Simulated scan of single mutants.
Amino acid sequence: MQRLTITIDDDLVAVVDAFIEAKGYANRSEAIRDLVRSGLEQSGNEVTRDRDCIATLSYVYDHAARELPKRLTQEFHDHHHLAQATLHVHISHDSCLEVTVLKGRSSEVKAFADHVIAERGVRHGHVAFMPADAASGPHGRGHSHSDHSHRAVKKRPV
Rank of each mutant, 00 (worst) to 15 (best):
A14C: 10
F112D: 02
V127M: 05
Q42I: 10
I8L: 14
S106C: 04
S106R: 03
Y59I: 03
L72G: 05
D34E: 13
V122Y: 05
H148Y: 15
S43R: 12
D78P: 05
A85V: 15
L72S: 06
L4E: 01
P157Y: 06
R51C: 07
H88M: 14
A111V: 02
D11Q: 13
Q2N: 11
A14D: 14
A135F: 09
K110D: 03
R156A: 14
S92M: 04
A85F: 07
G104C: 07
V15R: 10
H150I: 11
L40D: 01
D133N: 11
T56K: 11
R105Y: 07
H145V: 08
V101G: 01
L97G: 07
H148G: 15
T5G: 13
H143I: 07
R151C: 08
H77N: 08
I8K: 06
V116W: 00
A118Y: 00
Y25W: 09
V47S: 00
A128M: 11
H93L: 11
H90L: 12
R156W: 13
I32D: 07
S92E: 02
H148I: 13
R156L: 15
S43V: 08
A135K: 03
Q2R: 14
G125C: 03
S95V: 01
P69Y: 07
V15A: 03
D94S: 11
R3V: 10
A22N: 05
L40K: 04
H126A: 14
I6R: 11
F129Y: 09
D62R: 10
H139N: 12
E98D: 05
A31F: 14
C96Y: 01
R105C: 05
T86K: 11
E67F: 15
F112E: 00
M130Q: 04
S92W: 00
K154S: 12
Q74E: 13
F129A: 05
H145I: 06
D94F: 00
L40M: 12
H115S: 10
S107P: 03
S144G: 11
R105D: 10
G142M: 02
H148E: 15
V127H: 02
T100N: 05
H150W: 08
D114L: 06
K154Q: 13
S136N: 08
V60W: 03
H79T: 04
D78S: 11
D78N: 15
R66V: 06
L82C: 04
A111N: 08
L4N: 07
A118H: 02
G142K: 09
R156M: 12
D94W: 04
R105M: 12
L87G: 06
H145L: 08
H93W: 05
Q84I: 13
I54A: 04
V47M: 07
V99C: 13
V99M: 15
S144R: 09
D50M: 09
F129N: 01
A83Y: 02
T56R: 08
E30V: 15
G24N: 05
A118R: 03
K155A: 09
I91S: 06
A85L: 10
S146P: 05
D11Y: 05
A128L: 11
G24L: 00
H90G: 10
R71C: 07
D62M: 06
Y59P: 02
T5M: 07
H80Q: 09
V15C: 02
A22E: 11
L68N: 00
R51K: 13
E108Q: 14
T73K: 10
T7N: 15
S149A: 15
S136G: 04
H115M: 11
A64F: 14
S149G: 14
E98G: 03
